[in-house]
Amino acid sequence: MRLDEITRLSLIWGVPAEFKGLKGKFLLVPEMRPYLLGLSLCEELKTHGCPHVYVTDNMLGYLFFKGKIKETLLFYLERRTAEIKGISGSLYVTLLSKLHQVPVYFCPGKKPDIVNDKHAGTLDGRSFVEDEKSVIWPEEEIIKI
């Protein structure tokens, strides 16, 4: 797929608790490292008949810059009165959205199933580092809303 072929994307971050509200949207699904949640999410979206396109997380800035994203749907783990708690990268996505004047909608999500990767030191189960002490472990991120 080429960038010219995509526009008015709805960016997903986190794992949706349900798929009903996603029908009719063209979804942008990032990889969501370290867990690679994007891959399994794409499979589920396919079964629900939702059109989607996959990118790595670091490509999001460029897609915002090019005006490809019209809204962000952030699926949180927990919500309190004035803040939400989301998976790693929730702040990255929220800030990039706000800095490009793209609306962020906070939606209930669910805790991801962590299969192989717990941090940046591994990818799809394969280790790239000798010592995992020098890896920054992902944290759940708190965002004021």
């Binding site: 370290p34 790595t56 790693s88 990268g89 990255y92 941090h119 940046a120 890896v135």
Partner: peptide
């Protein structure tokens, strides 16, 4: 050196 996932930059 410390290694991070690309999406962790904002939180750091």
């Amino acid at each position: 050196a410390k290694l991070l996932c690309d999406n962790q930059a904002a939180w750091l």
